[in-house]
Each structure stands twice: as structure tokens, then as C-alpha cells.
């Protein structure tokens, strides 16, 4: 008897630990605290299914416990031969019928929500953004606005935004857990998904389909801002002039190096179809460098000197002229000047 009590204690402890951890999850990363349409739909079904499953589990465990305690062979029962029961029709029908009913209860809302999330009726009247996965970064093309950016996706709050997702190389998957479930970025077709965020803020996005050595470093962000801020941001982005000279002397040197080394061959600044590497418009306002690192001058320098160390398997390594530390420093200084809008991730968080 005591042994089984001990086992239950362990189970209860496990339950408490899990509850604590459930509450934890990082804000704007966890799927357990949804702040968007898709994530909320998923959460509703998670809760419904968890409740049903927990009920079934409790029933199974009750029978299980009773059976083990009551029918365990005791001393002196070694020769006891139990009645050999073949089966019981009533019981068997009961435990076939009840699961069928439970499955039906789950199936109806599932089918409804699947079709709801695939609804494309509003696509033509909404913001449409082409999302392209690359090893190992994300490109965003605001088709209607003629804006191209990468890594940080700006969208207005409480507004349906349609994403046309594809890939240029292997399969990736676009996932922002707090706002919506994931959708694969396939090289052969475009998948459409809409997202709608309910709160302003900066949300973590992750690549969720295994895509190579730096799969775990392919993070991105969705920056959700108010409608006014979004309009302002769009205007700022449309007016970026890549030719404009920076003022600081070191940065100017960096700009010259940037041009002399033909960095624009891969990295566009401003609206441009070039997307071999990440578009660097508004680079200074990025949340991170290379997806996961802090955006500091030191980090940019170490990236420029040895990208492989930060992101194994990236496409930049070996495909640009070698730079001295000073040159890298100047370019970093230049890149840190590329602030094209006052609408920043900070303004979304406030």
C-alpha cells in the first residue's frame, strides 16, 4: 500500500513542477500565452483536447490502480485459479462507443478551424507580404508597398496580414508561436497563411523545419506596431535613398568599402530586387545580428571577419574579399548608421 502512495507523491510532484514551468515560458515566444488569431485557435483546441484526454487518463488510472491493489496475488493464493472470462459484450461496446463519441467531439471543431485558418477571402483587401526562407535568414517583400526588408517583419496590430511563403533553397518553416502556428516554406510552391496580432510588441520567430547546420540560428522577429506607426514606417521605408552619404568620417570610409567590395551585389539597401543576402535597409534598428546575436559593433566586426564561427554553413563565408579588422570596423560603423525610420522595435514595446 505505502509503495503505491509513494508513487503517487512522485506523480503529484511532477504535476506541480510542470505547472510551474507552464506558467514560465518566455513572453512573446511561448505558444501557451497566445496573442494572435491562429495561436488562439490552436490554443482553444489544445485546451479542449487536453481536458478530454485528462478525463480519459484519470479513468484509466483509476481502474489501473484498483486492479493492481485488489487483484495482486497475496500469500496463500499461489494455487488460486481465477475464472477464465472470455469477454463481455456490453463492456466492449461501452468502451468502443465512448471513444467514438469523444473523437466526434474533437473532430467537429478541428475541421471547422482548419477551414477557418485557410480562408483567403480577405487576401486581396489586406496587406500581402511575400516571405522567403533562405539558408539561414528570412526575406520580406511587401508587394503592394514596394518595400523589401529582412529578419524583422513589421505589421500593424489587429489587422489581417497575408503571408505568401516560399523558399529559395531547402525547406524552412515560418513559426511565430505566440501569434500563429507554422507554415512550411517550400522551394516549389507558395503557401499562403494569414496572421493577426492582438497586441503591439516584438515577437520571436523560429525556423521550424530542419534546414542545415544553422537551423537553430535562423530566428527572426515580428514587430507589431499601431496602425499609425505602421503607416509612418511604410512611408519611411519607401523614401530610403541608398545613395545618401553618411556623415561620420569612419562611417564614410565604411560606406566606400561597402561599395568598393561590391557588397551591394548581394545586400541591397532600399527597395531592390537583389536578395542574395539579407536586405540591409534600416539595419541599425534590427533586433539582432544574424538572427540571434546582439546588434553591436563588436559582433558585426567578428561576423565580417569570420561569419562561419557565428553561423556555420552560411552562404557568405568565402564569397567576399578578405577584410582587415580596421576595414571591418569601418563597415560596421557604416551599417550602424543605417537607421531609416523612427519606428523601431522599442516603439512597438512601449
Amino acid at each position: 500500500m505505502l509503495r503505491w502512495m509513494g508513487k503517487f507523491k512522485a506523480l503529484i510532484m511532477l504535476g506541480i513542477v510542470t505547472l510551474v514551468l507552464t506558467a514560465c515560458g518566455k513572453e512573446n515566444l511561448t505558444a501557451l500565452d497566445p496573442k494572435g488569431y491562429g495561436a488562439e485557435k490552436s490554443m482553444d483546441l489544445m485546451i479542449l483536447s487536453t481536458v478530454i484526454m485528462a478525463a480519459v487518463f484519470i479513468v484509466v488510472m483509476l481502474i489501473f490502480t484498483v486492479v493492481i491493489i485488489r487483484f495482486r496475488r497475496k500469500k496463500g493464493q499461489e494455487d488460486f485459479i481465477p475464472k477464465q472470462v472470455e469477454g463481455n459484450h456490453t463492456l466492449e461496446i461501452v468502451w468502443t462507443a465512448i471513444p467514438i463519441i469523444l473523437v466526434f467531439i474533437l473532430a467537429v471543431p478541428t475541421v471547422m478551424s482548419v477551414f477557418d485558418l485557410a480562408d483567403e477571402a480577405d487576401a486581396s483587401s489586406s496587406i500581402n507580404i511575400e516571405v522567403t526562407g533562405n539558408q539561414y535568414w528570412w526575406h520580406f517583400d511587401y508587394a503592394g508597398e514596394e518595400i523589401q526588408t529582412s529578419q524583422d517583419l513589421y505589421i500593424p496590430v489587429n489587422e489581417k496580414v497575408y503571408l505568401d511563403i516560399n523558399s529559395t533553397d531547402v525547406i524552412h518553416s515560418f513559426w511565430v508561436p505566440t501569434i500563429s502556428g507554422k507554415m512550411d516554406a517550400n522551394p516549389e510552391n507558395t503557401n499562403t497563411m494569414f496572421i493577426e496580432a492582438y497586441e503591439e510588441g516584438v515577437y520571436w520567430g523560429k525556423c521550424a523545419e530542419f534546414c542545415g547546420p544553422s537551423h537553430s540560428l535562423m530566428d527572426f522577429k515580428i514587430v507589431v506596431v499601431s496602425q499609425e506607426e505602421y503607416d509612418q514606417w511604410v512611408e519611411d521605408m519607401q523614401n530610403v535613398d541608398p545613395e545618401v552619404q553618411v556623415e561620420d568620417a569612419v562611417a564614410q570610409e565604411g560606406q566606400e568599402l561597402f561599395e568598393a567590395n561590391n557588397c551591394m551585389g548581394c545586400h541591397a539597401i532600399g527597395s531592390s530586387p537583389v536578395a542574395v543576402g539579407p536586405n540591409l535597409t534600416n539595419f541599425a534598428n534590427r533586433t539582432t545580428l544574424a538572427g540571434v546575436e546582439d546588434l553591436t559593433k563588436e559582433n558585426i566586426v567578428s561576423w565580417l571577419l569570420d561569419p562561419e564561427a557565428m553561423k556555420p554553413g552560411n552562404k557568405m563565408t568565402g564569397n567576399y574579399p578578405e577584410l582587415t579588422e580596421d576595414e571591418a570596423g569601418s563597415i560596421a560603423e557604416y551599417l550602424m548608421q543605417l537607421s531609416h525610420s523612427d519606428i523601431t522595435p522599442e516603439s512597438a514595446s512601449n
Binding site: 475464472k83 466492449e92 473532430a107 475541421v111
Partner: peptide, 27 residues
């Protein structure tokens, strides 16, 4: 989705049959 959920039914039958096998036995 629905086809997959349906597998829960025969699997559930098995779990309950195992429990019923032990019920009344000498474990």
C-alpha cells in the same frame, strides 16, 4: 486529422481489454 483520431478507438479497446484481463485475476 479525422482519420488519425479514429485510430484512438481500436487502441482504446486494447487498453481496456488489458485492464479487464487483470480484473479478477491473480496478479
Amino acid at each position: 486529422s479525422v482519420a488519425t483520431m479514429a485510430i484512438a478507438v481500436p487502441t482504446g479497446i486494447k487498453i481496456f481489454n488489458w485492464l479487464a484481463t487483470m480484473w479478477g485475476g491473480s496478479i
